Simulated assay, not measured.
Amino acid sequence: MKDHPVKLALFDLDHTLIPIDSDYAWGAYTTSIGWTDPVVFQQRNDDFYAHYKAGTLDIHEYVLFATDAARRQGAAKSIAAHADFMRTVVLPVIKPVARELLRQHQEAGDQVVIVTATNAFVTRPIALALGVDELIAVDLEHDASGWITGKIQGVPSFREGKISRVEDWLAHRGWGWGDVEATFYSDSINDLALLEKVQHPVATNPDARLRAIATERGWRILDLFTP
């Protein structure tokens, strides 16, 4: 263990740093531009989202569904559409209070990392827009042409998988949990395992189940998006 632990600030993304679910919103956006059947897609998207909130989501099944439209449209059209999605959907909802929270950690010299269960195609531009270079997201498998297949590559950064992926990120830098003093901000009961792992869990805009646990355990509760 280092004499002075590295300060690590981990952030979930959806409903933690931004007041939307980026994967759900991307699906709604692709429907709005005619890539999916609106009725069928909306029903399945809502079903998956309900499972996510309940903590019962099959991440592999969901990613196959969520990436299907982009996979069929191809890389060039998908990248262009995502740029418009950023401009029209994501950037308008990023709040100054979230940027300020990130900036406080960055100015303090902390290692800032976004750790999200949403795939990297959707979230990499969002992380960069927030001024965060380090992103741990669900990595997507690519085919011989270099485009996504709909399958997950490696361990998905979802539920307990977030711990594994953070451990890999640490190991790549020659660190372990004993070398860091970690804070983790999340809204979701799905992130309970990582919240329990770090020294400083922060229930941020927490769902009802997480708020109850945080209250019971005396964890810090941060409501960034309260008017």
Rank of each mutant, 00 (worst) to 15 (best):
D12V: 02
T31W: 03
G74M: 00
T36E: 14
E141G: 08
H200E: 07
W175I: 00
I213R: 11
I94P: 08
L8C: 05
K197M: 09
D68Q: 13
H82G: 02
A76D: 14
A214Y: 09
K7Q: 14
V202N: 07
V97L: 09
I189Q: 14
H51A: 15
S145V: 09
E141W: 06
A76M: 03
D143E: 03
T118E: 13
L195G: 05
G154T: 10
A28I: 08
A76F: 04
K162I: 02
H60F: 12
H172I: 00
V112T: 12
V155I: 15
F121E: 10
T204V: 11
Y52R: 01
G55H: 11
T123C: 15
V115S: 05
H200K: 11
A83E: 15
D12A: 06
W147R: 03
Y49F: 15
V155Q: 14
D191R: 04
D47E: 15
A50K: 12
L8P: 05
V122G: 08
G27H: 04
I20H: 04
D179L: 01
D3S: 11
A50P: 00
V115H: 10
R173W: 06
L210S: 02
A193D: 13
D12K: 06
A129S: 14
Q73Y: 11
I148Q: 09
F121M: 11
S188Y: 04
K53Y: 01
G34S: 06
E167H: 04
F158V: 07
E216Q: 09
F158N: 08
T226G: 12
G146C: 08
P201Y: 11
A212P: 10
V40F: 09
A144G: 02
K197A: 13
R165D: 07
P92T: 00
I163A: 00
M86I: 02
D187G: 04
A54K: 11
S32G: 01
L101V: 09
L192G: 06
N45M: 05
P156G: 07
G174A: 11
A50S: 12
N45A: 09
L101N: 09
N205D: 15
I163P: 03
A214N: 05
S157K: 03
K7N: 12
P19S: 03
M86T: 00
R124Y: 09
P201L: 11
L91G: 00
